[in-house]
């Protein structure tokens, strides 16, 4: 593989799962703020919430396999000043409880942090019942909902700490597998602020979540071919950092969006909507194309569904021809 001869502009010393970043961040924010409470629907270890539960047993609520009730209790806990973090798989954090989130949290303006692990194909072998690829779309459609999809351990930890200080409902999406941990441990996480990881002039790659590292790998491959790619890490899908994207597009004149989500309703949709209004620009989408996932290893699935580094490189070639 070409990638093995490439040197990316970012390095990592270890692979870690984003969900562990959430767990560490939750514990830290629990120490910082006594009003932070946490709820889990029988997936405490999977969500890495066990450290918080052990440290703050009175502020941790095990609700059992009853996600709708969990969301409602979280909404109620805000009345009197608590800051609840709910934890379960992304599928059960969104689609299963959409109406509860819509009415009791979003419409009611409650300060609930809906934290969702095991999002997307990289859940792997459990198959499509658990691999939600629609959650970003579901959540970004709710008025007032902030939607965040983090790319590595450090960013997930920073995001978890940051959203506790943000007053309003938040959807925080992360995953199961160990992935390169390359963002700084001491990073400042600003909700709604894109991070330009690599500057380039020929094409903009806008990526979120696990696709951010793949975009970095793609940039290295493209550089070998003499193509200068700008890589933007979009951790906040809503509100989208319009200015950062428009600034980059003004320079590169084309864009590839990359996400572990359905093409319909995802980051690419948000970017396309922005560009069609402000600056129509050729765009290619790296996303799942109107399909459910299936069982397999995370790597196999990312390859089969076209979410790999080589897919990003191919998309760049396609979009460059459309400039």
């Amino acid at each position: 593989m070409l990638i093995e001869t490439m040197t990316t502009k970012y390095t990592f010393t270890e692979k870690k799962d984003t969900r562990s970043g959430f767990g560490v961040g939750l514990l830290e924010v629990g120490k910082q703020n006594a009003d932070v409470v946490a709820l889990c629907a029988d997936l405490t270890e999977s969500l890495k919430m066990d450290a918080f539960a052990k440290e703050f047993p009175n502020r941790f609520f095990q609700v059992g396999i009853a996600e709708a009730n969990m969301i409602g209790i979280a909404a109620g806990l805000t009345i009197g000043g608590k800051i609840p973090f709910t934890g379960t798989f992304a599928n059960f954090s969104t689609g299963r409880v959409y109406d509860q989130i819509r009415q009791s949290v979003a419409y009611s303006g409650k300060n609930v942090k809906i934290c969702a692990s095991h999002a997307g194909l990289t859940l792997g072998e459990d198959g499509a019942t658990h691999q939600i690829l629609e959650d970003i779309g579901l959540m970004k459609m709710l008025p007032g909902m902030t939607v965040i999809n983090t790319c590595d351990f450090n960013q997930t930890k920073a995001a978890t700490i940051a959203i506790a200080k943000h007053n309003g409902p938040v959807y925080l999406r992360f995953g199961r597998p160990a992935v390169p941990n390359f963002t700084p441990a001491d990073q400042k996480f600003e909700i709604g602020k894109a991070v330009t990881l690599i500057e380039g002039t020929d094409v903009t790659i806008v990526a979120t979540g696990h696709l951010v590292w793949k975009a970095i790998e793609a940039e290295a491959q493209l550089a070998q071919l003499g193509i200068s790619a700008e890589v933007i890490n979009i951790h906040t899908i809503k509100p989208l950092d319009d200015a950062a994207i428009l600034k980059s597009i003004a320079k590169t004149k084309c864009v590839v969006t990359a996400e572990e989500h359905q093409m319909h309703g995802g980051l690419g949709d948000s970017v396309a909507q922005l560009l069609s209004r402000k600056s129509p620009t050729p765009q290619e989408f790296i996303a799942v194309n109107d399909s459910f996932g299936e069982s397999g290893t995370p790597d196999q699935l990312m390859t089969k569904y076209g979410l790999d580094t080589t897919d990003i490189v191919s998309a760049v070639h396609r979009v460059l021809k459309r400039k």
């Binding site: 409602g72 209790i73 806990l77 608590k82 609840p84 009791s104």
Partner: peptide
């Protein structure tokens, strides 16, 4: 939905 919300408020 209201019973869940009321329980949350009672817990707080």
């Amino acid at each position: 939905q209201g019973m869940s919300v009321a329980i949350g408020a009672a817990l707080t």
